[in-house]
Amino acid sequence: MTEGNACQGASKQHGGTKRAMLAYGGIQITAAAVSAISLAAIALSLCAMKKEQSIQRLH
Score class of each variant (00 low, 15 high):
H14G: 03
L46Y: 05
L39R: 13
S54W: 01
A41S: 14
G9W: 04
L58N: 03
A40C: 12
L22Q: 15
I37C: 08
Q56H: 05
S38D: 15
Y24Q: 14
Q13D: 08
I55E: 15
G4F: 06
G9P: 02
A48P: 00
C47P: 01
M1S: 09
Q53V: 07
Q28P: 00
R57K: 08
S35N: 14
Q8N: 12
A32K: 12
S38F: 02
Q56Y: 05
I29Y: 02
V34H: 14
A31Y: 05
A31H: 08
Q13Y: 12
C47F: 01
I29D: 04
H14Q: 11
M21D: 15
R57C: 09
V34L: 13
I37A: 14
T17L: 11
S54V: 02
G16Y: 03
A10M: 06
K50N: 09
L46V: 12
H59D: 12
Q28N: 06
S54Q: 13
C47T: 13
C7H: 09
M49P: 00
R57N: 04
C47I: 10
I27Y: 06
H14T: 09
K18Y: 06
G15P: 00
G15M: 00
G4E: 13
G4C: 03
E3M: 05
Q28H: 05
C47M: 12
E52H: 03
Q13N: 06
N5D: 14
Q13V: 09
G16S: 07
G9L: 15
G15D: 02
H59R: 12
K12D: 07
K50A: 11
S35D: 15
A32D: 09
K12R: 15
A10H: 04
T17Q: 15
M21A: 11
A31G: 02
S35W: 02
Q53T: 09
G25S: 09
G26P: 00
